[in-house]
Design a protein around this nucleic acid. Structure first.
Length: 840
RNA sequence: GCGAGCGUGGCGGAAUGGUAGACGCACUGGACUUAAAAUCCAGAGUCCGAUAAGGACGUGGGGGUUCAAGUCCCCCCGCUCGUACCA
């Protein structure tokens, strides 16, 4: 009988579903385990990144179930977002139709992979049954002062008359119109994440099961810094200019002042100075992307205004309006110290400003390190930290400055001028301002009839929908036509999964039992935004008494990308891998037979055509092969390369395993292990226990590729084992059954089928994880290297825990060691059970 | 620009500061076959050496700490992710 994955995989998927094997419900007699993979955007078809993510999560879910946990493993759809609108315009369909059709086809694909989801908890964020709850949450935030409206800058496409996403701005131009993008001021809704900045920052240290890199990135993103506000008095004017600096110690090196084009003072200047107005306009003829702002050439406009230096009586500093000063950080104004800051240095060179070093260094300027201060009056000889403290003290005494903590993080702008998102439940009244929609009127559903081809915001164009009455004064008013950022939906979906009842977002009981998520898995690209917003959202919900947790994810794992070799034709056009054939290390086009240029291995992307369709792999090899390859090749957190030969290797292994088990002798009586094991059986059992130990450890540490490697080793031992007696049969079947339980989380369909072939009653998905018998894995001898000057000259096997003298004696008997020991050693290093090193 | 991560044979990757290359892929040789595929067995970092024994070199590059460095520290190079309206 041949291994036929498509047959057995379908069979077991149906069986699991029929038996409700993965249906989760609260059971207080068992410890719970909530495993969650980041839910997908329903783009239409799963890609290899999904396959990887969901295979990792499924392994964890099945493994934890075997370990006796009550597992919750749900799946849903991050269904709002920009692509649906673009697709709707291109394909002349409705975003809802497109999205729901995509969900259906992707769900079919996920089911085909054999993932152990409790599909009863499926949700789609574009469904009013989901987003109605977040409208209520928003109103609670609004009433608690967490949500507010303010003016902000957006990317404006003057031709399309629409706001563009950063993604839609390419080289400063709109992706469809090609028009130069402008910054435009617009009012939008914000959530006060900055109020929670300290807590979000401080609690990072308690996230002990998060990758260090993610924690560092979040810390830097929040960017708490201790600095100072300094008031500079503007010369020939009664007014002050407040600047923020993280380096008050360099105040004596200050040679200019720069303010943001959006600064209040810039506006005032522009009113009287048309050139200044022009310069500000020039600064606003760019996108709002940080990367564009930072990489842009530094420009400044000399305003003619000056301030006096707080500690240097006769020195005045020119005020510039500068394109690189951000209004959102600090006070939107800085002093420039060119000697000790790269940007200030570049600016000073460009505008021929003074460069005054205030830290002693032998190195070239700008110097960003620490050292004794010079040219700094009362700060001389102090280091940076001391000088900061003293400078702030002096500023406060003079009443012209104070210590100030600032944050890099800005409040979360949740407004989007888009159709396919959750409507923001507010009514804008000329008389009463922003009025919350009364709760009994929720949900505010999206209108179905909408014209996406018109310029501008579709909801704003929709007169019927937007016109309403003010709940307060009953006069004519209009609805808020902005919709939520889709990060809003993904900031609480994990809580909704715990209990999808129709009347409340979740129940207290379910939250108490299931939350927080024990293991969250997703791409590293979400390291900051999605994960930080979710952490904030839980705190905000707690603040308004909707939930009682702070940290949503106890343990986090971030997976790397799935990559593939790229190919180009000789005309430099990207070529799909299945159009390429390799012969004698040369690549050829399948159709034209022309040589093909093999390029770099890069992240799979449609634009470079280096994609492999999971569907195709599953049809050709089965889900188990795809899953096994995903797990066996690379550690989860690293990028992996998809290679067809690697897939074939996994396929071959499963075939070998299949054939091996099918051909085992079957005898129901052969179940109980004999009491006295022969030496060879003891050895096999001991390999098995070592494997159980290694696989368990590898899975716990998220090194799934090592788990696969150990299982393969165990199988190598099994397949070279010779069965002679009845006892041997029992031992082999016993070891094989344990191997199947170990491999079940990886290739569950094959494991189920073979488990049933071994005439077991229940299903393997309900079996318990095998226990390690430590007595089998203790060794009584150890191989250690003997080094001379750090180079290995011999390897000896000695009893474990031998004393140092014995080890030395054995080592000195080695011929090759003696050969290199021309004189008696100066020093002998003996680390028991590890190494011997003779230093000569 | 800024923040973060990664870099080990032909390839994916193993390796509590202690034998670098586990396990696999590709490759080479052999067995089976009329033949091929599949399967099974064996070999293998590079160089010197005889295909041996043994040795030299070797973890992106350069320097350092240590009896001992892929691992720790400093500098540099390359790639990847994020950079607030893609999700």
């Amino acid at each position: 009988m041949k291994y036929n994955p498509s047959l057995i995989e379908k069979k077991w998927q149906e069986k699991w579903s029929k038996l409700n094997v993965f249906k989760a419900s609260i059971d207080k007699t068992k410890p719970k385990y909530y495993v969650l993979e980041m839910f997908p955007y329903p783009s239409g078809a799963i890609h290899m990144g999904h396959v990887r993510n969901y295979t990792l999560g499924d392994l964890v879910a099945r493994y934890k179930k075997a370990q006796g946990f009550n597992v919750l493993h749900p799946m849903g759809w991050d269904a709002f977002g920009l692509p649906a609108e673009n697709a709707a315009i291109e394909n002349k369909t409705h975003p809802a139709n497109w999205t729901y059709a995509n969900i259906e086809s992707m769900k079919t694909q996920l089911i085909r992979m054999g993932l152990s989801y409790d599909w009863d908890r499926e949700l789609a964020t574009c469904n009013p049954d989901y987003y109605k709850f977040e409208q209520k949450m928003f109103l609670d935030f609004f009433n608690a002062g967490i949500a507010y409206k303010k003016e902000t800058l957006v990317n404006w496409d003057p031709i399309e008359q629409t706001v563009l996403a950063n993604e839609q701005v390419i080289d400063g131009r709109g992706w469809r119109s090609g028009a130069k993008v402008e910054k435009k001021k617009m009012k939008g809704w914000f959530l006060k994440i900055s109020d929670f900045a300290d807590e979000l920052l401080d609690e990072i240290d308690n996230l002990s099961n998060w990758p260090e890199k993610v924690k560092i990135m979040q810390k830097n993103w929040i960017g708490r810094s201790n600095g100072a506000i300094i008031k500079f008095s503007i010369e020939n004017s009664p007014n002050n200019l407040k600047i923020f600096t993280t380096r008050p110690d360099t105040i004596f090196g200050a040679t200019f002042i720069a303010i943001s084009p959006q600064h209040e003072l810039s506006k005032q200047i522009a009113q009287k100075d048309s050139k200044a107005a022009e310069f500000i306009k020039f600064c606003e003829s760019h996108s709002i992307k940080e990367i564009d702002i930072e990489k842009a050439e530094k420009h400044g406009y000399e305003t003619g205004l000056t301030v006096s230096h707080p500690f240097k009586n006769d020195v005045s500093l020119k005020i510039y309006i500068a394109n690189f000063v951000l209004m959102d950080y600090g006070t939107g104004a800085i002093f420039g110290c060119p000697a000790h800051d790269q940007r200030d240095y570049d600016f000073a060179i460009k505008y021929s400003l003074d460069i005054i070093p205030v830290i002693k260094t032998g190195e070239t300027l700008p110097f960003m390190g620490d050292g004794p201060h010079i040219n700094s009056n009362f700060l001389n000889n102090l280091n940076t930290e001391e000088a900061k403290i003293l400078c702030i003290k002096k500023l406060s005494e003079l009443g012209i400055g104070e210590e100030k903590v600032t944050y890099r993080i800005r409040d979360w702008g949740v407004s989007r001028q888009r159709y396919w998102g959750c409507p923001i439940p507010v009514i804008c009244c000329d008389e009463c301002g922003e009025v919350p929609v009364p709760i009994e009127q929720l949900p505010i559903s999206l209108p179905q009839d909408v014209d996406l081809n018109k310029k501008g915001n579709p909801l704003e164009n929709h007169n019927n929908w937007k016109k309403t009455k003010c709940p307060k004064c009953n006069k004519n008013a209009i609805r808020e036509t902005d919709t939520f950022d889709t990060f809003f939906e993904s900031s609480w979906y994990f809580a909704r999964f715990t209990d999808i009842n129709p009347s409340t977002p979740f129940s207290e009981e379910a939250i108490k039992y299931w939350m927080p998520v024990d293991q969250y898995i997703g791409g590293v690209e979400h390291a900051v935004m999605h994960l930080l917003y979710s952490r904030f959202f839980m705190r905000a919900l707690k603040y308004v008494n909707i939930i009682n947790i702070e940290e949503p994810f106890i343990s986090l794992q971030t997976q790397g990308m799935v990559c593939h070799q790229t190919f180009k034709t000789k005309n430099k056009k990207w070529l799909h891998p299945n159009k390429v054939r390799k012969e004698d290390n040369e690549y050829f086009h399948v159709d034209t037979k022309e040589p093909v240029i093999a390029g770099r291995i890069e992240k799979m992307s449609k634009s470079k055509k280096n994609v492999v369709d999971p569907q195709q792999i599953i049809e050709n090899f089965g889900a188990d092969t795809a899953r096994l390859f995903m797990l066996s090749d690379s550690p989860p957190n690293r990028d992996m390369e998809w290679s067809s030969s690697g897939v074939e290797g996994s396929w071959r292994f499963l075939n070998k395993l299949w054939k091996f088990v099918i051909n085992l002798p079957k005898d129901k009586k052969l179940k109980k292990l004999p009491i006295n094991l022969s030496k060879k059986n003891q050895e096999l059992i001991s390999i098995m226990h070592r494997t159980i130990n290694d696989v368990t450890k590898a899975i716990d540490e998220f090194h799934f590729n090592l788990a696969v490697a150990s299982i393969r080793s165990l199988f190598n031992a099994l397949s070279s084992y010779e069965i002679n007696e009845d006892d041997d049969k029992i031992v082999v079947i016993h070891v094989t059954e344990n191997l199947l339980i170990l491999i079940n989380p990886m290739v569950p369909h094959l494991a189920e089928e073979l488990w049933s072939k071994l005439e077991n009653k229940g299903i393997i998905s309900n079996e318990n994880w095998p226990k390690v018998d430590l007595s089998y894995i203790q060794k009584n001898s150890v191989k250690i290297p003997i080094q001379v000057n750090g180079k290995v000259r011999a390897v000896v096997e000695i009893p474990i825990d031998s004393n140092k003298n014995d080890i030395k004696e054995i080592a000195l008997k080695e011929e090759n060691v003696v050969k290199f020991l021309k004189t008696s050693p100066k020093k002998v290093i003996i680390i028991p059970n590890r190494v011997v090193n003779f230093v000569v």
